[in-house]
């Protein structure tokens, strides 16, 4: 199919919205890295910066939605164009949530700097954050390249993030049982790990939107889920 519309202004509109998504994606990627780094290096200034930057991400989401609504109203998009407009709205929602989770990690990182370090859990959390960030980079890459195969790959990789979360969950549980003074810190760390696990789900959502955009249908099979903490007994009573 030819790539361009007869009305070139339509192409410009669609490109402009997708450029906003990419800009948002870049900001969210940075937020994930910086939040994890602030936690590991106990860098309060960096954590503050992540918290401050979230506002810009939220504003971009609003703009993406406004632009998408304008295109729907003025251009009545159909087929691939319609799927593009619908997907940018969903992807921007996913990105905005990931931004919120990063902000929350930064907030907890600030609290954690006031406490003594609990064992050496920060590198494991950073690795988990890195895995999610790489997934996000690939998901956005798949979006721009309209690559459903890459998106499917991203979608399956979420299982690894779930596994990392399970491992951390057990680790925190052990530390809390060892010494009740660890509870406050571990609770914060656990929420951080949970936030990253949720980010993985949102990246998966983006990957699914790519598949919908390219093929016109959402993947039907249930992707493998490895977050089993809800079934784990809290304590071996």
């Amino acid at each position: 199919m030819p790539e361009t519309h007869i009305q070139t202004a339509f192409d410009r509109d669609l490109e402009a919205i997708q450029a906003l998504i990419m800009k948002m994606g870049g900001m969210v990627e940075a937020a994930i890295t910086d939040a994890a780094k602030a936690l590991e290096t106990r860098d309060e200034a960096l954590a503050d910066m992540v918290r401050g930057n979230d506002k810009a991400i939220d504003e971009l989401e609003t703009r993406v939605n406004e632009e998408a609504i304008r295109v729907i109203a003025t251009r009545a998009p159909t087929a691939i164009d319609l799927r593009t407009v619908v997907s940018v709205m969903k992807v921007s929602g996913n990105l905005e949530r990931i931004g919120d989770y990063s902000k929350n990690i930064a907030k907890r990182a600030t609290v954690l700097t006031q406490m003594s370090q609990i064992h050496d859990t920060a590198p494991a959390i950073r690795r988990m954050a890195q895995a999610v960030e790489l997934m996000l980079i690939d998901a956005l890459d798949a979006y721009i390249k309209r690559d459903a195969k890459l998106a499917e790959d991203v979608r399956l990789r979420d299982a690894e993030v779930d596994q990392m979360y399970n491992a951390l969950f057990r680790q925190f549980l052990t530390y809390m049982m060892e010494d009740p003074r660890n509870i406050t810190g571990c609770m914060h760390l656990h929420f951080i790990a949970k936030n990253i696990e949720r980010m993985g789900d949102h990246v998966t959502g983006i990957a699914e939107q790519v598949i919908y955009l390219v093929t016109g249908t959402l993947p039907e099979d249930n992707r493998p889920k490895n977050d089993r903490t809800s079934f784990q007994k809290a304590l071996e009573e």
Binding site: P2, I6, T78, A79, L82, R83
Partner: peptide
Amino acid sequence: IFTNPVDSRTESYITGRIG
């Protein structure tokens, strides 16, 4: 037809691309 046409000629036509 309007969300996910099968044929690329249909898609080109309804989305206003040169086809």
